[in-house]
Amino acid sequence: MGIGYDRACSELVYHRLPWNEPDAPYSLEVLFEDDHLIALNKPSGLQVLPGGLFQQRTVLTQLQWRASRQSSSLMHQETHPHPVPVHRLGRGTSGILLCAKSKLAKTRLAAYFADGTSVVGSNRYSDACPCKRRKISKIYRALASGILREDEVVIMQPIGTVRYPGVAKGLYIATSSGKPALSKVDVLERDVQGNYTLVQVEIQSGRPHQIRIHLSFIGHPLIGDPLYVTGGQPKCFDPEFVDESFAQDGGYQRPVNPVPGDCGYHLHAHQVVLSHPITNEEITLTAPLPSILRTRDETEAIK
């Protein structure tokens, strides 16, 4: 790394060490698009925003390339800003990702998400129908380890952060000192022989890694989750010893312990219902299910 400073031009130049990004999917299916909003079907393995090991192979970069190609024939490109994601999905999570194409849409969609999170724990929340008063609701499919006995489970476990190697801003975990979070889990199918449960999860709030944390908190972490274990805590973690040697050269060395961006679990943002940020029209978006997250009846119906 080298830093040069030219007093005459007041120019600061940063030369970082080269790095090679890991492979990532290069496919973004468009589920819906108009002048203000674009909804994508994000594949598992593709990171939403630059960070850590991924700086170019991200959803944001692909959106920028796509917008540049579309606007290359226009004289006033500044009137066509690049779309930006208004929320995040974990790198290993697939499914619906909402992106704003205008400043007004971005502001209103961000308010939708913020309002839903603020409802949790307040008097506006109703156990019977947690999402009726919201302008956006999100439904996921997930494959949880073990057999959930109840057909329906409402999880209200706060989520906060702890220092953790490989995660600069801290790792989100289940903790009583965290912020309120709510997930409504419905069992779709149980496989006793395989010892797993196919579930549908509707989230009232939108804390990072909420579904992974909540299901692991109740003793049913996602099948293949490399990070979270029973109790909503990370595996391979000693709070008394945080080795930060991974942070050399901006953190682009691969951390030794599992980190949130690692893949292997099965979680899919299957459906989103929202009020259009400009027209207020109700829109229902659905991302096709991966085969492993379909019920037996859904699989048979496709054949």
Rank of each mutant, 00 (worst) to 15 (best):
G2I: 11
I3P: 07
Y5S: 04
D6A: 15
A8W: 00
S10W: 06
E11K: 14
V13N: 11
H15F: 13
H15L: 14
P22E: 01
S27P: 02
L28M: 03
F32S: 09
I38W: 01
I38D: 09
L40V: 08
N41I: 02
S44Y: 04
L53E: 13
F54M: 01
Q55I: 10
T58G: 02
T58K: 04
V59Y: 12
L60T: 03
L60S: 08
Q62L: 15
Q64W: 11
A67M: 15
A67G: 09
A67P: 07
R69D: 05
Q70P: 07
S71I: 06
L74M: 01
H76I: 07
H82P: 00
P85W: 10
P85V: 05
P85G: 03
H87S: 00
R91E: 07
L97Y: 02
L97R: 10
L98W: 04
K101N: 09
S102Q: 12
S102G: 11
L104I: 12
T107M: 08
A111L: 15
Y112R: 03
D115E: 13
D115Q: 11
G116C: 14
T117F: 03
S118Y: 00
V119S: 00
G121M: 03
S126H: 14
C129G: 04
K132L: 01
I136V: 15
S137Q: 13
S137W: 06
K138Y: 02
Y140C: 13
Y140V: 14
S145R: 14
G146K: 03
L148F: 00
L148I: 12
L148A: 01
E150G: 00
E150T: 06
D151W: 03
E152G: 01
V153K: 03
I155R: 09
P165S: 13
V167A: 05
I173Y: 09
I173G: 07
S177N: 11
S177I: 07
P180Q: 11
S183R: 03
K184P: 09
V185L: 04
V185W: 06
L188C: 08
D191G: 09
V192T: 07
G194H: 14
Y196Q: 10
V199C: 07
Q200E: 15
V201H: 09
V201N: 12
I203C: 15
R207Y: 14
P208E: 05
I211H: 09
R212A: 10
I213A: 10
I213W: 00
H214M: 06
L215A: 14
S216D: 02
I218S: 09
I223V: 15
D225T: 04
D225A: 10
D225H: 04
P226L: 02
G231N: 15
K235M: 08
F237G: 00
P239L: 10
P239Y: 04
P239M: 02
V242M: 05
A247I: 01
A247V: 03
Q248T: 09
G251C: 06
Y252W: 09
Q253A: 04
Q253F: 03
R254N: 02
V256I: 07
V256N: 01
P258I: 10
G261P: 08
H266P: 09
H266C: 10
A269N: 12
Q271E: 14
P277K: 08
E281K: 15
E282N: 01
T286R: 11
L289K: 12
P290V: 03
L293I: 11
L293H: 11
R294L: 15
T295P: 11
T299I: 05
A301W: 06
K303I: 05
